[in-house]
Design a binder for these strands. Structure first.
Lengths: 220, 220
DNA sequence: AAATTATTTTAGGCATACCTAAATTATATA
DNA sequence: TATATAATTTAGGTATGCCTAAAATAATTT
C-alpha cells in the first residue's frame, strides 16, 4: 500500500497534467503546499516504484501504473463527495475537505456500495467527472463561462471545487451544475457578467466566472 | 490534533481499563500488537500531554482529558459501525475493520449527520454502547452467556466485535443483538450449550459462548 | 535472603515525510 | 558570450512511531 502522501502526489500530478502541460517540481510543490526540495524527494521515491517518469529539470509524468492509481484516488474522492452530499446532506462547500481525508481510507467494498446507492453516477456535486472502476473518465463537453457573449443561454456543467468561499458564493445564486442561465450583458474591457437565473438577475465577476464551465450554449 | 497512533493508544487503554484492572505496558503492547518498548515511548508522550498518568512499573491510567478523547474515538467507531451496517449494508463481520480506519478521519459534522440519520442510537451492531456527545456511556445490564442454566431464556445483548470469523459464525445462527433464545441444555464439565433460537436448535461451544452477553434472563 | 525469571525501560536504529540552506544546473539578460 | 537570475537538487536536520538488544527493576522461587 502507498502512503497517503504518495497518493496525494500522484493525484496532484494527474490534475496538473490535465490542466496545463509540463508538471515541474516547483509547480507540484506549490500545488501541494510543500517546498520544492520535498517534491524532489517524493518524485524520486515514486520513480523508484515506476509510478512516474522523471529527468532532472525536465518535469514529471505519470506512468500507466501511476495514472491508474491517480484515477482510483480521484474516483474515491468524487464518489465520496457525491455520497456525502446526497446521503448525508453535507453542504457542497464542505464535501471537498471531508472527502480529502476519507479518500485514502475507504475500502473498495464500501466504495462499491456507495456507487450502487447513488445509481452509478458520472459526476460529483461540482460537476467533475467520476472515473469508472476501470479508470475511464466520462467526457464532459464544456467551455469556460468567460467565452459566453450577450444573449447566450447555457447550463452550468462544472465548477472549481477547491475554494469553499467561492462555492458558497455560487450557491447563493443557485449556480449548481445543471442550473440554466442566460447572459444579459458582458461588460466591456474584461468586465463582469450580468446573467438571468430563473428570472433572478445576478452579477458575476470575471474572476468568479473563470471557475465556471458551461455546456448546451444556445443563442436566444 | 493527536496522531492516529496516539488515539489508538488512548482507546486501547480505556478498553483495557474497563475490562480488567491495571493496564501494564506489556498488556497494552500485546493488545496493540507492538513491542513493550514502543508502548513505553507512547506512554511517555501521552504523559507529557497530560492524557495519562504513569509511574514506572506501575501501569498507566487515563486522565479525565485522556478519557474524554478515548470516548470520543469510541463514539466515532461505534456510530460508524452502525452506519455502515444500516445505511450501506456492510456485513456485521466487516464493519469493525472499516470503522477502525474511518474513526480517525471523520469530522464532527459528518458524525452528527450519521447520528441523526440513525435516530440517535445507543448501541452498535454488536450491541456495544455508543457514548453520547458528552462522553456518557449508556449502561448495559448483561451477563456472560456462560452463566446461563438449563431452561433459561434470554436476549442477546452484546457480542465481542474483534473477531470476524466468530461474527460470521454467530450470524449463521442468527445470534445478533436483540435475538431471543432458550437454553435447552448445558453439558456438564464446562461443556457446550444447546439452545433453541426461534425453533431452530444450535450447539454453541463454551469458548464461543464467552463472547456472548445476554439480558432479560427468565426461567421458563 | 539470594538467585532466578519476568517485566519494563533505556539506548541506538530505521523509514517516512517534512524542513532549511547550500550547491548545482538551466534560462534569461546584458 | 558572459553574467545574473531562477529553478532544481543535494546535504543535513526534525519529528513520529516503529524496531532490537541491552540494562535496570520488580516479582517469584528456592
Amino acid at each position: 500500500m502507498l502512503t497517503q502522501a504518495a497518493e496525494d502526489y500522484l493525484k496532484s500530478i494527474y490534475k496538473l497534467q490535465e490542466k496545463g502541460g509540463k508538471v515541474s517540481t516547483g509547480i507540484l510543490a506549490e500545488y501541494l503546499d510543500v517546498k520544492p526540495a520535498s517534491a524532489t524527494g517524493m518524485i524520486k521515491k515514486l520513480k523508484s516504484m515506476n509510478l512516474v517518469s522523471h529527468e532532472r529539470y525536465q518535469g514529471v509524468t505519470l506512468t500507466d501504473a501511476g495514472k491508474a492509481i491517480a484515477l482510483e484516488i480521484i474516483r474515491h474522492h468524487r464518489l465520496l463527495e457525491l455520497y456525502l452530499f446526497k446521503a448525508l446532506g453535507v453542504p457542497w462547500d464542505g464535501v471537498h475537505e471531508e472527502a480529502e481525508k476519507l479518500e485514502h481510507v475507504i475500502s473498495e467494498d464500501v466504495e462499491a456500495r456507495m456507487d450502487a446507492f447513488l445509481g452509478y453516477p458520472t459526476a460529483d456535486p461540482h460537476g467533475s467527472p467520476i472515473p469508472d472502476k476501470n479508470g475511464v473518465v466520462p467526457k464532459t463537453l464544456s467551455i469556460p463561462m468567460t467565452e459566453l457573449r450577450n444573449g447566450q443561454s447555457c447550463v452550468v456543467a462544472e465548477v472549481n471545487d477547491n475554494d469553499s468561499a467561492l462555492l458558497r458564493h455560487l450557491g447563493s445564486f443557485n449556480l449548481y451544475p445543471g442550473t440554466a442561465f442566460r447572459v444579459i450583458e458582458v461588460a466591456p474591457f474584461e468586465g463582469p457578467f450580468t446573467i438571468d437565473i430563473a428570472g433572478q438577475q445576478a452579477v458575476i465577476g470575471r474572476e468568479v466566472a473563470k471557475n465556471i464551465f458551461v455546456s448546451n450554449v444556445q443563442e436566444t
